[in-house]
Design a protein around this nucleic acid. Structure first.
Lengths: 135, 135
DNA sequence: GATAGTAGTCACCTTTTGGTAACCTGAAAG
DNA sequence: CTTTCAGGTTACCAAAAGGTGACTACTATC
């Protein structure tokens, strides 16, 4: 039996609030991490400090623009720290702050669940094909 | 001390794969649930079978179009079951399938984490204001 | 004959997100 | 004098996501 979650303990109206409303925690977390590159960047930095170019090479398919954009946003949120060394050629280091390591927790949990339950996605893919075939 | 996660146990190259690559579990999970309405719809149905109109009233701000769209997609994925009663006025019931209840797990986990760590978002908000003020 | 109720669809529009390619800095190496 | 390096920025574009309002069908009730 699965243990009762915090959210399930709430009454219906309160549960709706924390999940449905823009300003409540669940939506905020999703607004934060639910996009193409943020979880990947967090994951990358969770394994240690990186330079810009290192990340750009490690993350396949990311454009320089998106990498900058995501890094700047995370910096403004206080999730990563950016250290610029004024040398030539320039050097910049990025690392997770303490807050960043905190935010990384649910990302890692999500990844773990996905890896452990990979068969779920196989099933979904089969269902999807079956549905589109019978349309 | 936080226990070591499945993902962290992998070597760097394998870890990169499961997170960075389109076809690997973590990205698939995000592609599935990381959008404006899917987690909310799952959460709503997790509390029991609903009619279309019930959901439309319970979820503030959702348009009929988006509700239909999300429901149809989840149905095609085999995450929810749609039962139409050909009566007048029409009646349609939606409920999570077993696969759906499985997929709801990480959503609930995410919500739980967010509720338990609400102060993280307060901190982020403060950082963000401070950053935009000093620009 | 008008109105209400449920469960939608359709055409159209706006916003958000993401991608491409060119350009910049400044010193050093060929 | 041109190229190289790191670490970006900028202008421009395309696609996806999401929202709006009108409209449908069918029956029952006012």
């Amino acid at each position: 039996m699965v243990e009762k979650s915090e959210v399930d303990k709430l009454n219906k109206a309160d549960a709706d609030k924390v999940v449905f409303h823009e300003r409540y925690p669940s939506r905020r977390l999703l607004d934060l991490i639910a996009n193409r590159w943020t979880p990947i960047v967090l994951f990358c930095l969770a394994s240690g400090t990186h330079h810009y170019g290192q990340m750009h090479r490690r993350i396949p398919g990311i454009s320089k623009k998106m990498l900058s954009q995501v890094l700047r946003k995370l910096e403004a949120d206080g999730i990563i720290h950016r250290e610029v060394y004024r040398v030539v050629p320039p050097k910049t280091e990025y690392e997770l702050t303490e807050l960043g390591r905190k935010v990384y927790e649910p990302v890692r949990t999500l990844c773990d669940w996905a890896v452990e339950n990979a068969e779920v996605f196989e099933q979904i893919e089969r269902n999807r094909s079956a549905a589109s075939a019978s349309r």
